[in-house]
């Protein structure tokens, strides 16, 4: 019960304090939204299939930027102000603390993921989407991206540093995870890297849900994403514990 009280209050505080912080607005909200609008506008005559085929990539990108930006803000702001010390000094387990810190970002990423859907709903008919698979893939992608963001954020001292470090991963991932360019069209030496990125499997699930394409079984995609989540979770917990970074 005590852990739940702490968990809920950390989550509530992060949502209230950090969702609308400027670095999060620019990287986590404006960038995915403007990218979405740019993609929709550049499509000469809004062909239903073109827009629909863009949706998985845009949603995955929104999740990636939304979650990693949020983590960059929540962790680095609190490290700089030393308020993270308060959390480390409290009698709550590291597992509860990591869960609480990532939950706000997962929620944020999941909400932002629906912005391309919202825009598309005004242009095309969205019937035929497998919403169960779509929502599952959004949540799993949000979890892995958030944990990736946490792994990066604990190494940075300032928000701009965290955003810069994140970009080293985010932009290559956009092109290597099959979001906008199919993996089979990548140079052969880059393709193994694609299969090491969690976003590849999330995008594949979304493709299956929205365009009924995709190269893997949805269950296998899910299992791989869960495995990535567990590994990243324990890595982040170990890393914070090891460094006692604050």
């Amino acid at each position: 019960m005590n852990a739940w009280i702490a968990f809920w209050n950390i989550l509530r505080k992060d949502i209230k304090n950090y969702y609308l912080k400027p670095p999060n607005i620019s990287w986590g909200i404006i960038l995915p939204l403007s990218w979405t609008l740019m993609m929709f506008v550049r499509t000469p005559s809004p062909q239903a299939m073109d827009i629909r085929s863009l949706l998985p990539g845009l949603m995955a990108m929104s999740i990636l930027f939304g979650t990693t930006s949020m983590l960059a803000v929540t962790i680095t702001f609190e490290r700089r102000g030393r308020s993270f010390d308060r959390l480390l000094l409290a009698p709550i387990s590291m597992t509860t603390l990591v869960f609480a810190k990532i939950s706000g970002a997962i929620l944020f990423g999941a909400i932002i993921a629906f912005s391309p859907i919202l825009f598309a709903a005004f242009i095309i008919d969205l019937s035929g989407i497998n919403w169960g698979v779509a929502i599952a893939s959004i949540l799993l992608m949000a979890v892995t991206s958030t944990l990736l963001g946490l792994a990066i954020a604990v190494s940075a001292k300032e928000v701009f540093e965290a955003q810069t470090y994140s970009n080293f991963f985010r932009f290559p991932m956009l092109f290597l995870s099959g979001l906008f360019l199919p993996i089979e069209r990548l140079p052969i030496f880059l393709q193994p890297i694609s299969y090491c990125l969690p976003l590849t499997y999330g995008a594949d699930m979304l493709n299956r849900a929205i365009t009924q394409t995709g190269f893997m079984n949805v269950w296998l995609d899910s299992l791989i994403l869960i495995a990535f989540s567990v590994l990243l979770f324990y890595y982040c917990q170990w890393n914070i514990n090891r460094k006692r970074i604050f």
Binding site: M1, N2, A3, I5, A6, R86, L87, A90
Partner: peptide, 23 residues
């Protein structure tokens, strides 16, 4: 150095710190 949350008011800061102890 004071390490409470800048954007939260005094009362909310105290309530938040209390919640970390399961109150």
């Amino acid at each position: 150095e004071s390490n409470l949350y800048d954007d939260m008011d005094g009362f909310d800061n105290l309530c938040f710190c209390a919640s970390l102890y399961g109150m």
